[in-house]
Amino acid sequence: MTAAKPKTWLARLLLALLMTVTLLPFLSMFTAALAPSGSYPNGLSWPADPQWSNFARAFEAANMGQLVLSSTLIVLGVVPVSVLAATMAGYGLAKLTGGRNRWIYLVFVAGLTLPFEAVITPLYYEVRAFGLLNTRFAIILPLIGLYMPFSVYWMRAHFLNVPNDLTEAAQLDGATRWKEFWLVQVPLARPAIMSLTILLFLWTWNQFLLPVVLVKDPSRRTMAGALGAFQGQWGTDVPLLCAGSLLILAPTVLLFLAFQRHFVAALLQGSVKG
């Protein structure tokens, strides 16, 4: 372990460098956000007279209250339903079906690498046919479907690791499949469900393509979708744009900081399994 000393320093140096590179854009945005509105600030320079009011103006210009509400509604529409459907399907595919029904699972997995762009055009016409264009359901319903490959794959992988003995013991204890699912399997699946919830929350909150295509009114979009519109409207006013962007990315960052451990675990596992 003595030989490891200089290496630790090298590692720390590298990491510090990476962290700086990661943080610089945020810092640069932050200083720019404090410059007088309409001015052209420099990359990274503390303004002589920090304009904290820019944040308040951006809050109003971006209609932040409405945006948070809209994003929350969309997340509430997408995440619980997706998690429930995926948990049920994951259990069904892992515990209730044998080799002959493997094709159902393979059909789900086939969608894992599907770029959303590949289906966005027909989705537009489909959502329009349903009469849902420009409503939040235009984002909610398709997202549930689009999340199924990953979510089902994720939950099935979890249920495969639950010993069959527990299922059988529950059967002998007199549980129907439905009761076994709720009383035995779901409580045991809590960590997997938690991670899935975090991932789906992030992906929904940050979803951009669907809101841009399917919903015109920014106040009915997700935060990310609204940010696109905000840029279109205020793109030339750098301080205001930066202030607005910081505000818009603040909710997820705050949640992330609060639940850092869970988020990191979910993101790491999520990509390994996905």
Partner: peptide, 18 residues
Amino acid sequence: LFVLPAFTAYAVFVLAPL
């Protein structure tokens, strides 16, 4: 019955558009 909800959502909003 367990797989149906997920499959329906997947079929309507992924397979059909595809």
